[in-house]
Design a protein around this nucleic acid. Structure first.
Lengths: 230, 230
DNA sequence: GTGACTTTGTTCCTTCGTTCACAAGTGACT
DNA sequence: AGTCACTTGTGAACGAAGGAACAAAGTCAC
């Protein structure tokens, strides 16, 4: 475990494929579940099943982090958990501000599994003065007017936008001006941000529409004569 | 406009790339917003900006649906809205059942923009008997025990899972057994489903972890000496 | 200590997605 | 009517991701 405090071969810390990064959190979670079940060692086949991927893909993904497995044996669960956590930055403490205390904002505040992964919700912000002072999941609600002060005083670097669409861009701009450099956006509008700021858009409506597309495909396949216009 | 009621060249209706399908809903929404602003015609450059992509990508995406633009002019907004909606299946009516009436389930029930796009929430299901009879966004809450009956009687084909992780797979199995063939899963566990059933996993925790990864990258870049272990 | 077996890590190849550049088509203006 | 400016649609180059197969490496039994 102390063999390589920092991997000298430059495979790590540079050029981990984006697709791999998106799967690492899933592996991490699957490993945590296995660890709690008392499993100490896991093969790529077993872990792949638990994570919902196939084993060659899993091995290739893990190989991007370094050689943390033992051939003929598998991966040490605890060690691999630590390595993935470190790579993802979960061993650090991330201050997160959530803007918008509607149902979605509350759902996020109550979401378990943030605290245990280094994410600390340091503030909830809402435009409604009536909600200020309220607490959700132990975090007090601050008025939108104090957004910048909250971000600065807590040194938050991650902002979550859960406000109605029309307000999203303005909230985004203010978050960035106050020092936020990563944004998770649930509002159904594409945000424009300066270089150096990361945005991830999560759109509940889009997901349903993608499903509808495939659903229609299935329906078309079942009644091909109609679909083909014959 | 009536030249090809059904495109004879098989470009359409077969083989639209998955990446394109995932962006069509975004284009659709951007077009709706433009249309409400009174815009009648839009160029690929303008629409691309509104949708947050670059124009070559937009044009290639749209070309998979057919030739719906006019060179030298652009795209007719209303016509393109209709074509995308048809391709996505939004001109049909989709019955959706939401399982789990926590904060997330309520947020989904209240989400605007479902109704206008063909999605009709026909039922909310919860395991807590105390919530049965309650109404959320005008939809009554049904007890989990009646899940199958609800799905069958409403002919729902899309199910949304917003329950705690441990319950997700069982709910999933029951939905499928009752006739659901598309599932949107918010529980942080990978679902296993039989062939022919589509699943989309949306994981709020994963998104934050991906952001944390990039955030750490930025921090490393700012203090390279420490990050490189020198 | 040796051999057989297990499992990882990596290489090659194919598929998919994105970007670039340009030809073709359209409308406006003279 | 002809020319010019503009925009779409597409072919081709480029890059990223996925999958299979195999060699390397380590363990366990004896």
């Amino acid at each position: 475990m102390s063999r390589r405090p920092v991997d000298p071969r430059a495979a790590r810390s540079r050029g981990i494929p984006e697709a791999t990064v998106a799967r690492l959190p899933v592996y991490h979670r699957a490993l945590l579940a296995l660890g709690e079940s008392g499993v100490r060692t896991v093969s790529s086949e077993e872990l792949a099943t638990a994570a919902g991927v196939n084993s060659p893909k899993l091995r290739k993904d893990l190989s991007h982090l370094g050689s943390y497995g033992t051939r003929g044996v598998g991966y040490d669960v605890d060690y691999l958990i630590y390595q993935i956590a470190r790579e993802l930055g979960l061993t650090q403490d991330w201050a997160v501000v959530i803007v918008g205390v509607g149902n979605l904002g509350q759902a996020l505040a109550n979401y378990g599994g943030f605290a245990g992964r280094g994410f600390r919700i340091v503030g909830l912000v809402d435009a409604d003065p009536a909600r200020v002072g309220e607490q959700v999941a132990g975090v007090p609600v601050t008025h939108l007017g104090r957004l910048e002060g909250l971000v600065r005083s807590t040194r938050a670097t991650i902002g979550v936008i859960a406000v109605p669409g029309p307000a999203a861009q303005q909230v985004c701009d203010r978050l960035i001006a106050a020092g936020v450099t990563s944004i998770l956006n649930f509002a159904p509008v594409p945000l424009v941000v300066p270089a150096g700021v990361d945005v991830r858009e999560v759109d509940l409506g889009v997901e349903l529409q993608i499903l509808a597309f495939h659903e229609q495909r299935k329906a078309d396949a079942a009644v091909p004569a109609l679909a083909a216009g014959r």
